[in-house]
Design a protein around this nucleic acid. Structure first.
Lengths: 231, 231
DNA sequence: GTCTATAGATTGATAGAC
DNA sequence: GTCTATCAATCTATAGAC
């Protein structure tokens, strides 16, 4: 599990790129400043000099990748929303999911180390550290809310409770794919996987569309015991 | 996020139950022996006296819950397999998924603290600590391999590559649901959720069935660039 | 089995020379 | 900006009295 050596950027960038890999592979707690500095071939004091603290470094690393991803998500979701409004019809499920999912993996082809970050972001819900989870959620929340809104418009006939569960299934699958993509599609413990992110994204979008558009039978409704669904 | 107080079992059990909650809520690294002993109302030295080391405690906690879950999975999958063999037909997708998914949440109604453990197990793929992830995977692997085998039998017409991706989507959704169930269905950061595990399991199984049984169009095959699919 | 006290290692962060 | 040296806090684990 060798760390990818960077060519020779400046110290600050080298720290961030190396930290991104180590945090993704080993987690935040297991990555000490000492080991990070050693892997990045910088002095140990340089980390605190450039970023102030370990927490600030983590926040900076998350912000660097997550901000453009969610900005692009929102732009594309709003485009879908406006196109549907112009035509006076509901947005199509597939278009909404495409606008939401694709930006997640858009940069992986260009930036080599960005895909490591997807492992960090894929832990958004199950991240044990409260502070880090809060940072991740703060970034994700606006695009998630917009996704929810457009999906309700696209599937206005579906009971909101069913829509919410299906969204959670899709989000779980998406998070898992992000994690796998981040570790170079190498989760060989159970099943082999093709080393092809493009294929994954296409199948993921069609999977999500199929899940959200699945028929719903009213007779099952009596088994849905929902407490509060106001949003 | 108060820790649930146990009635008054013996020291060893009280340590395990409290550790299960803290590990699920805060993670392994963030839970020190000191804090664990304090929360369990036992002496700090008692943890090492009863379990030898922190790593051994973690292994014991995982083993306690995961062994019966995976034993039940395998028993029920084998029952599905044998029933299909007797009738000379392929196993039904829904039966296979039901046998695999349901045991995951079977004990949550009975044992109060068991659902906390689902948060730990839900991190099986994205767990940062290598040692812990290895322990989790070692437990899960046999039932996952049997699931894979039976899904191939149930969907023999489907290209293996497509089947693998769909399995990963289902597994991602399952892991997410395990995590949510473990934190008492409280992931209110994005979407509200009903506090009803039974509903979740039913919808999860029908979701998984719908995903695996989805039609597949041959013309898409050229976009699948798989390297090695031997197993 | 339970307790106090502490060893021994590692952590994040900083002071100060260059 | 980079380095060495070090502080103070925290961690796991253990020794030994009761």
């Amino acid at each position: 599990m060798g760390i990818q050596k960077q060519p020779c950027p400046n110290t600050k960038t080298r720290i961030m790129d190396t930290a991104e890999q180590l945090f993704a592979l080993k987690g935040f707690q297991c990555t000490s400043i000492k080991r990070l500095a050693c892997a990045a071939r910088v002095n140990q004091a340089a980390v605190n000099y450039h970023f102030g603290s370990k927490a600030a470094l983590i926040e900076k690393i998350i912000d660097r990748r997550l901000r453009p991803i969610n900005r692009q998500r929102i732009e594309r979701l709003e485009a879908v929303q406006q196109a549907a409004a112009r035509q006076g019809c509901r947005p199509r499920t597939e278009d909404v999911l495409h606008a939401f999912i694709e930006p997640t993996f858009a940069l992986t082809e260009i930036i080599q180390t960005e895909k490591y970050f997807l492992s960090i972001a894929g832990r958004v819900f199950s991240e044990p550290d409260d502070a880090i989870r809060s940072i991740l959620i703060l970034h994700f929340k606006p695009s998630f809310l917009l996704l929810f809104k457009l999906m309700k418009a696209a599937l206005s006939g579906l009971p909101e409770a069913v829509l919410l569960w299906r969204l959670h299934f899709v989000i779980g699958a998406l998070a898992h794919c992000m994690y796998m993509c981040g570790t170079r599609l190498a989760v060989p413990d159970f099943f082999p996987l093709p080393d092809n992110a493009d294929t994954m994204v296409k199948l993921l979008i069609s999977f999500a569309t199929n899940t959200m558009n699945a028929p719903y039978y009213r007779e099952n409704e009596n088994m849905l015991g929902f407490d509060s669904l106001e949003y």
